[in-house]
């Protein structure tokens, strides 16, 4: 009887896990990843999703099995067995979640530390957010300013974010990285783009009436193209300054 119950619960759990896994795999969840930091974030994401699916499957299976098996007719006046607890079980379901969250915490802390590492050859860009626009300054190239963010493939960039009025937040879903720009302080965000292409920068902190459309273009270029573009901008800036 008891063994039969366990077998049936396991079967329902596997079915539930299968269904949840299908939802996880067949729906395109994460947009294509285009940064080194994003790859680490995705790894943590999928590990945690796997753990979540396992826990969800257990809970769903026990709930369904209980409701189906132990349901009685409304006029049934009998009581269940007076079980008040089981120390072994209670220790088990205290310990297993504790172990699981420890795994998640360690993985997350490692990924976070690696994502915070700054390379010595990094590109620096000063990002300024205001209601409702972004601008980007390149201090290593004479400090010219643009309204679209151009980055170099496979070279880390350190964004130094400032806000002039209210809080804004820098997010490119393909890069995964996000950081608020806070008036009064400078915040930092390292990103290492890995793929040439064009993405969209989205403001993710409610910043007023124009919040929904506070976007900017982000273009990742090949190193040679980027260098050429940056030098050209620098010359243009110098000429404008001289003229």
């Amino acid at each position: 009887m008891r063994r039969g119950a366990i077998v049936r619960v396991v079967v329902i759990a596997l079915l539930a896990a299968g269904a949840a896994t299908a939802v996880a795999l067949f729906i395109p969840w994460l947009p294509p990843v285009q940064s080194k930091e994003g790859e680490r974030i995705d790894f943590v994401f999928w590990v945690v999703v796997a753990i979540c699916i396992a826990v969800f499957a257990v809970v769903a299976a026990v709930t369904l099995y209980s409701v189906i098996t132990f349901r009685v007719r409304p006029d049934d006046d009998s009581d269940g067995p007076p079980v008040h607890g089981h120390t072994g079980l209670e220790i088990t379901w205290t310990a297993i979640p504790a172990v699981l969250v420890t795994i998640i915490a360690v993985l997350s802390a490692v990924a976070l530390a690696e994502n915070g590492d700054l390379k010595s050859n990094r590109l620096k860009v000063d990002v300024t957010a205001r209601q409702f626009a972004w601008s980007f300054k390149y201090p290593q190239y004479g400090g010219f300013e643009t309204t679209e963010l151009r980055l170099e493939e496979n070279r880390q960039v350190e964004l130094n974010l400032r806000a002039l009025d209210v809080i804004h937040s820098f997010w490119v879903p393909e890069f995964r990285q996000k950081q608020d720009a806070v008036p009064g302080i400078v915040t930092h965000l390292p990103i290492t783009p890995t793929k040439v292409g064009t993405d969209t920068l989205i403001c993710t902190e409610l910043c007023g009436l124009g919040h929904a459309l506070m976007r900017a273009k982000v273009i990742v270029m090949r190193p040679a193209d980027f260098e050429q573009w940056a030098r050209a901008q620098q010359r243009k800036g110098a000429q404008a300054g001289a003229g």
Binding site: V67, A98, A105
Partner: peptide
């Protein structure tokens, strides 16, 4: 993050205890 994740432990205890309460009960839906 560590304290946040730790809250999953007492919360988990509650969820599993509710499920164990239904186990072999006489469930009226």
């Amino acid at each position: 993050m560590v304290t946040t994740l730790l809250i999953a432990v007492p919360t988990g205890i509650k969820v599993f205890s509710w499920l164990a309460t239904t186990w072999e009960g006489r469930i009226h839906l």
